[in-house]
């Protein structure tokens, strides 16, 4: 294992920020794994730290294949993590909206450029990231439709779903998008948690990465190969929104099979305790995403459901 400082930022008031990469194996730049880009992505940091520990063991056992190398960057934003902020500590910009970066630009552009210079020449790029809304997902590999995405390779993770959505203008400055543009096959892996550690979900994500690297011939690792991933397009999911605001009492979990008209949640009046809205499943399906905040706005997407025929 080689520890390397990929980028260092000097500060007048704090210890320098050091972005570190941990490399294993040698030769071809096969896979790069990036964890927390935001200060609250603790689960993403945890997964990467566990992976570093596992790769260290695999390297010692000679199970990283010859002429293959892997680098893990557990976080590119320890400054924000250390003070409990999601975005950049001074100007609140999002480093994951600054790629490919600019080494003569503003601070977060420089950070992005410093990171991208080190991660952009790998064959595969894997990012653990989080969604801008609070909620839980079925673990899945998420991709943007750019013309460069590779769905079949994404299935090698063995996660239940490979999810593809249309790219929007603001996506063009994410790490994932820029990896793809610069010829790295990029995958974003979503797990159940962000600002807390969900060990079970983390294990699933770690296993998925190891399974992927094994199938792509980068490591030698016997493991449960996971699911035969189902490919879903974002536009085929059925969104269930709240018509009212209040206390959100949820009954359906992610991965639950629900029947049309089944009760998914209730909205309770915050003062009287009366149920002011009952959220029902509009279709038969599987809960792919649910909001998890205790109080909700009206117009909040509460559930996203994968429609199924389910006649049983």
């Amino acid at each position: 294992m080689e520890e390397k400082v990929l980028f260092e930022l000097n500060s007048a008031y704090r210890d320098n920020m050091r972005i570190k990469g941990y490399s294993f194996g040698s030769g071809e730049k096969s896979a790069c794994i990036v964890g927390a880009t935001r200060g609250n992505e603790v689960q993403q940091l945890y997964i990467c730290s566990r992976l570093i520990n596992i790769f260290k063991q695999l390297e010692q056992q000679g199970k990283i294949k010859s002429d293959k190398s892997i680098m893990v960057v557990p976080t590119i934003n320890n400054y924000s993590m250390n003070i409990g902020k999601r975005f950049w500590s001074t100007d609140n910009t999002d480093i994951n909206r600054m790629f490919p970066g600019y080494n003569l630009g503003e601070t977060t552009q420089r950070i992005a450029a410093g990171v991208f210079d080190n991660v952009n020449s790998y064959k595969y790029g894997i990012q653990f990231t989080s969604f801008y809304m609070q909620g839980d997902f079925i673990p899945h590999v998420r991709m943007m439709k750019t013309g460069f995405e590779d769905i079949e390779f994404a299935k090698n993770f063995g996660l239940p779903y490979v999810f593809r959505r249309e790219a929007r203008p603001y996506d063009t400055t994410t790490l994932n998008y820029n990896w793809q543009i610069w010829d790295t096959k990029a995958f974003s892996v979503y797990t159940n948690a962000t600002d807390s550690i969900d060990v079970k979900s983390a294990r699933e994500a770690i296993n998925a990465v190891l399974s992927f690297l094994n199938k792509r011939g980068i490591i030698e690792y016997k493991c449960h190969e996971g699911y035969i991933s189902q490919f879903i397009e974002g536009k085929t999911l059925v969104n269930v929104k709240s018509a009212t605001a209040g206390i959100f009492v949820r009954y359906a979990d992610v991965d639950a099979r629900v029947k049309k008209d089944e009760k998914l949640a209730e909205i309770m009046h915050p003062y009287s305790g009366e149920v002011i809205d009952t959220i029902k499943a509009p279709v038969n399906g599987i809960v792919f995403f649910h909001a998890n905040q205790p109080i909700i706005y009206s117009q909040t997407p509460l559930f996203r459901i994968i429609p199924t025929d389910d006649l049983i």
């Binding site: 009212t244 605001a245 209040g246 206390i247 915050p270 003062y271 109080i295 909700i296 706005y297 009206s298 117009q299």
Partner: peptide
Amino acid sequence: SVGLPIDEKL
């Protein structure tokens, strides 16, 4: 107009 959770509208 969007309802906020606790007795307020945006």
